[in-house]
């Protein structure tokens, strides 16, 4: 579904992605972790073209990024992207946020889009917030609207870029619960997160990155109980100590 082959990227002189080779199968849930600045956000931002790659191949849903034949706008409609900062549209209500792309991009009739928008918002536990503006919602609620906004497009792939990092601790679980629900519906997911409980519960694979390179990949059990490299051991000892 997603395949990186020898992908490199630089920000100026900074080599942010170093020879990444990695593939994600359909219906697979992959968690990407690593210290900050390790390139994990950049990695998933490349998949929907928010960042461009310098060399190597990146094939998403059968289409090679950067090819003339690849229509990036069309491809993006198949990829949901959840941001750390939610990025809801502040001038639109929750319902308008989730129906904007279905109406304008998918060309679904408004009434139909609103019906499935309401259904989706109810599914993420926001049945009473259809007409609330983002500024009237808590962080956890905003992130759940953001996830619903992606799901309303019926995407093939969902990408999450540190979806709980900007949240107060007591709101993290409500967002993770929704994400677990999405994973259980067999969505292809790539999740940048440090929530190791989530990784253990739903991920088929954990990818550990450091300094722009993939250092280690393995099943959650392998990775957490028997990390193979010094870097991953050091990282895990820091985040699992508490």
């Amino acid at each position: 579904m997603i395949e990186f082959r020898g992908v490199n990227k630089w920000f100026g002189a900074l080599h942010v992605l170093k020879d990444i080779t990695l593939s994600v199968e359909p219906r697979e849930v992959v968690v990407v972790c690593g210290p900050s600045g390790s390139g994990k956000s950049t990695l998933i931002r490349c998949i929907n073209g928010l960042e461009t790659i310098k060399d190597g191949d990146l094939v998403v849903d059968g289409q090679r990024l950067g090819d003339r034949a690849t229509n990036m706008t069309e491809l993006r409609t198949e990829i949901g992207f959840v941001f750390q900062a939610f990025n809801l549209y502040p001038h639109k209500t929750a319902l308008e946020n989730v129906t904007l792309a279905p109406i304008h991009v998918r060309k679904i009739a408004r009434a139909e889009a609103e019906a499935s928008g309401r259904e989706m918002l109810a599914k993420v536990g926001l049945a009473d917030k259809f007409n609330a503006y983002p500024s009237e919602l808590s962080g956890g609620q905003q992130q759940r609207v953001a996830i619903a906004r992606c799901l309303c497009m019926r995407p093939k792939i969902m990408l999450f870029d540190e979806p709980t990092s900007a949240l107060d601790p007591e709101m993290i679980s409500e967002v993770l619960d929704v994400m677990v629900g999405v994973a259980e519906e067999r969505m292809t997911m790539m999740v940048v997160t440090h929530e190791m409980g989530f990784a253990r519960k739903v991920a088929q694979r954990v990818v550990f990155m450091d300094a722009g390179a993939v250092v280690e990949t393995g099943t959650p059990e392998e990775f957490f109980s028997d990390p193979k490299t010094d870097r991953s051991r050091a990282f895990l000892s820091k985040i699992l100590r508490h």
Binding site: N48, L50, T73, E74, R76, T77, I79, G80, F81, F83, N87, L88, Y89, L100, A101, H104, V105, R149, C150, M153
Partner: peptide
């Protein structure tokens, strides 16, 4: 970016 990611032209 959010608008871009959801495929708006």
């Amino acid at each position: 970016e959010a608008a871009l990611a959801s495929g708006l032209s």
